[in-house]
Design a protein around this nucleic acid. Structure first.
Lengths: 241, 241
DNA sequence: GTCTATAGTGGGATAGAC
DNA sequence: GTCTATCCCACTATAGAC
């Protein structure tokens, strides 16, 4: 068999592909070796263990992606008009997640899908990485949004950034759902369209006024009834049945 | 050892808990048996296989949850004011996902987290169920939103419903991220707060005007350049609230 | 209906040839 | 640096005792 001069890269690429579509535990080292055209033994040679392989994938992508995000964020903060600036900030967060600036095979979308899967599985190896590597970048974005929307409490911005990341993840995880529900009129795998839709949706979400917190203690009303028609403000409903 | 008279229930509950936090493949039948206080053999007796167990969990929850959603949706459609109606519709979709009306142990949140994990892992058993059981309910919601926002194309509603589901999933999968990024000011595990934030965010998103599609052909994935400062670009002026 | 024992398979990781 | 061969363990599922 032809020896691949850069088998290490082939293994990384194959692992990314398989992990991001099937999850970590569903994929065996043998599966990865088969996909990469390598032998199982060479994987443990290069990465010592299956966990080590996953770690290497993260190290490979996190740097370039967040670097690109910060570059775009710096440019976005210089936009004068508030609405345009907000949109540029959100786009700076979203765009590198879909298509990495680095020339690594597969771009950013595959890695972002991998992140989505790992976070869903509660992967222990990844758990430590997240807080260390991503939070700095995320905080920079939250601060930029705070500057543009000074009336909005930080907690609300955090909630909406959570929804943004969840939407981003799910769009990459289940694009076929968009295609199916739209009866073929939209293509869930069209990433350019996904970015535009997601940016527009998020900017609108961020610009909404804060939710009311009329009272923090009284959970009297039964949660099963629809909100009153005149509803001036919204109250928390008891959801713990 | 004390024989549990309803071991079947204990197994289902234990499996739900473990699958929803660690994923399907990371959890062994032995793990479930240990958690439930049962023996591995009794699991295959009751559910025939690991897949059969997962299937049974879905059968157990899907019916009640979607029934509750439709009940709330019917009530929501009767709300007069458009803004209030939209909010009631979104709440009818979200609320049962967080707290099932049925008295099954653990409520709806655990099952919804399970759904999030399974969709991320691309689980084959679940894949078939989704389209059959959930799409009917989802279509009912999309139609209700279409009625309230007749100017918005169905495709855009589908995209925004995709973002809603993703946000919903991720909030249940990674609540600690909200707590961490808000520096303890918000509690990501506070489901009542999560519902309010999610509903407010989604209603604002839905009310935003549609994204512009100035040209349908030039959606290149390559556009890694930052948006122009003046933003003559690809967006309609949209006004929220 | 639940448990014990076990069959049969496939996993991760290792040692040493090339 | 890559491949072959192999060890040992954990897993799913089964058969039959109680």
């Amino acid at each position: 068999m032809t020896r691949n001069p850069n088998m290490r890269e082939a293994i990384l690429s194959a692992a990314e592909l398989l992990f991001s579509t099937k999850g970590f535990n569903a994929v065996s080292i043998r599966d990865i070796a088969l996909e990469a055209g390598a032998n199982p033994g060479s994987i443990t040679y290069h990465f010592k263990s299956k966990d080590g392989l996953l770690l290497e994938i993260y190290k490979r992508h996190c740097g370039p992606m967040n670097k690109r995000r910060i570059e775009l964020l710096v440019a976005a903060r210089r936009v004068r008009d508030v609405q345009d600036r907000l949109e540029a900030i959100v786009r700076a967060y979203v765009q590198p997640a879909f298509s990495s600036s680095s020339d690594l095979a597969g771009g950013g979308a595959r890695f972002t899908r991998l992140r989505a899967v790992m976070s869903a599985e509660g992967n222990a190896v990844v758990g430590r990485i997240i807080a260390e590597i991503f939070d700095d970048t995320t905080n920079a974005f939250i601060e930029a949004i705070e500057e543009s929307l000074p009336h909005l409490p930080r907690t609300t911005i955090v909630w909406r950034s959570q929804f943004l990341l969840g939407a981003l993840y799910y769009t990459l995880v289940s694009p076929e759902r968009v295609t199916r529900l739209s009866r073929g009129e939209a293509d869930g795998a069209d990433m350019a369209e996904a970015i535009e839709q997601l940016v527009a949706s998020t900017v609108a979400s961020l610009q909404a006024s804060d939710v009311d917190h009329l009272d923090t203690a009284s959970h009297q009303t039964k949660s099963t009834q629809p909100p009153a028609k005149g509803a001036a403000g919204k109250r928390k409903e008891n959801s713990t049945s």
